[in-house]
Computed example of a mutant assay.
Amino acid sequence: MSRLRIVPPADDAALRDWRHVHNTVIPTHALSLDDARERAARHRLEVAHLDGALVGCSTVRPPVDGTATVIARVLAPYRGRGHGTELYARGLERARQLGAETVETVVLASNEDGLRFALRNGFVETERYLLPGDTIPWIDLRLA
């Protein structure tokens, strides 16, 4: 049985993989490689591969005032196989290790799979909003 290999991006090639998943799942907020490098300096990023194929990525924003943000992204062909659950569990564990008392996530409203995943995993919607220039709302959710 194949196992998901999840590691922090250690170089630009791995950051490109993280960025590819991010930009595919969140096409309205495409990031450059420099953006990904900046995020890697502030957040805990991971990239997931299965038998050499890029599957997904995650972001853990360290706690601010006790609240961390955990985001798991999985490319559409790999959804429904437990990869998001594994990425999310690792992110949740990391957030708690960093001292999070509360965990939030954010989902682009057009990502129906991601929203269903968050709701199934105990998150409740707290806010919907548009960023300047966006046409698709973002949804903030908090782990109940």
Rank of each mutant, 00 (worst) to 15 (best):
V74M: 03
A72W: 05
R5F: 07
R16Q: 13
Y129A: 13
G99H: 09
V21Q: 06
G56F: 00
A72S: 14
A53R: 15
V7D: 15
C57P: 00
A109N: 13
R61F: 03
L15D: 01
V47W: 03
A10L: 09
E112C: 11
H49C: 13
Y129M: 15
V7Y: 10
V64W: 14
I136L: 05
R73M: 07
E125Q: 15
R142Q: 14
L130C: 05
A100H: 11
A41C: 07
T102C: 11
W138P: 03
T105K: 00
V103N: 00
G114D: 06
M1H: 12
A36Q: 14
T59M: 08
A95D: 04
G84W: 00
D113T: 13
T24R: 04
P137Q: 06
S58E: 07
A68G: 01
E101A: 05
R120H: 11
T69I: 09
V107E: 03
N23Y: 04
A118N: 10
L141R: 02
G133P: 04
T102K: 11
L4Y: 01
L4V: 11
R39H: 12
H22Q: 05
A109R: 12
R61Q: 01
R90P: 09
V64E: 14
Y78W: 15
T69N: 05
A68F: 00
N111K: 08
R79E: 08
G84A: 07
M1E: 04
R3E: 15
A109I: 05
N23K: 04
A36L: 07
E104V: 05
F123P: 00
G56T: 02
A89T: 10
R94A: 13
D140M: 02
T28G: 09
A76M: 12
T67Y: 05
A48V: 08
R19C: 14
I6F: 03
L87E: 03
T105A: 04
S58F: 00
V74Y: 10
Q97W: 09
T67K: 03
T69P: 01
R19L: 11
F117H: 02
L54T: 11
E125H: 09
G114C: 04
A100W: 02
L131A: 12
F117P: 00
R5Q: 12
T67M: 10
G122M: 04
L131Q: 09
L31I: 14
A41P: 06
G82K: 10
I139V: 15
R61Y: 04
I6M: 09
P27T: 12
E125W: 13
V70R: 00
L54P: 01
E86P: 04
P137K: 08
D34S: 08
G52P: 04
T24G: 09
A13L: 13
A30Q: 15
N121I: 12
H20G: 05
D140T: 10
R19A: 02
W138S: 13
G56A: 15
E38M: 09
G114P: 00
A48S: 15
A41M: 07
